[in-house]
Simulated scan of single mutants.
Amino acid sequence: MGGDVTLNSWGQAIAAIRGFGYGATIRVPKVAEPTLPQSVDLRLSNFPWSIHKGATRVYRENTPGDHLQIREYPDHWTVQRDRSNPHYRPVSHARGDIPATTAAVSVATFPVFTALSSLELAGQLTAQATDLSMALFADGVVPFVNAVLN
């Protein structure tokens, strides 16, 4: 099943999507369900390769394998199933749940995303780059300019 189905409660939507195959989408109007379902352990999916499809936020069920993915739009939610959760199994997710081009970019950028997701590490990298630039300037440019002027 690949088309959109609209259901008016999280209970109905979650039960139905767990019975559908991968690729099916269920819409839940925010008028009927203004908040996320309390019955599912969800976490915000901030991975750069989460395919937002115009959504304002993407949430994933907090489990490594088969899980629910919920996208939030201004007036509705969509619910789908994914085979692998990128929070736990990024390579499996790239291989099975996302298109090939996005997967190639995702796998290639995963180390960069992981490293830069730590603010402390990003700050350290910036400080090291600044120190290196200053050292190159002091050890290379200044002596060269002095030699030329003398």
Results as ranks from 00 to 15, higher is better:
Asp4Cys: 02
Val5Arg: 14
Thr6Ala: 07
Ser9Phe: 01
Trp10Cys: 02
Trp10Val: 07
Gly11Glu: 15
Gly11Val: 09
Ile14Val: 14
Gly19Met: 07
Phe20Met: 15
Gly21Pro: 04
Thr25Trp: 12
Ile26Tyr: 07
Arg27Val: 11
Pro29Tyr: 06
Thr35Arg: 13
Thr35Trp: 02
Leu36Lys: 03
Leu42Ser: 04
Leu42Val: 05
Pro48Leu: 12
Pro48Phe: 15
Gly54Phe: 06
Ala55Ser: 14
Arg60Met: 12
Glu61Trp: 05
Pro64Phe: 03
Gly65Ala: 10
Gly65Lys: 12
Gly65Trp: 08
Asp66Ser: 11
Asp66Leu: 11
Leu68Ala: 09
Glu72Asn: 06
Trp77Gly: 01
Trp77His: 02
Arg81Ile: 11
Arg81Val: 08
His87Gln: 07
His93Gln: 01
Ala94Asp: 01
Ala103Leu: 00
Ala104Cys: 04
Ser106Gly: 15
Ser106Leu: 02
Val107His: 06
Thr109Val: 10
Thr109Asp: 04
Phe113Lys: 04
Phe113Pro: 00
Leu116Gln: 09
Leu116His: 10
Glu120Tyr: 04
Leu121Glu: 03
Gly123His: 08
Gln124Gly: 11
Gln124Cys: 10
Leu125Gly: 15
Asp131Leu: 13
Leu132Asp: 10
Ser133Asn: 09
Ser133Val: 08
Ser133Lys: 12
Ala138Trp: 11
Asp139His: 09
Gly140His: 01
Phe144Ser: 06
Phe144Cys: 03
Ala147Asp: 11
Leu149Trp: 06
Leu149Tyr: 05
Asn150Trp: 03
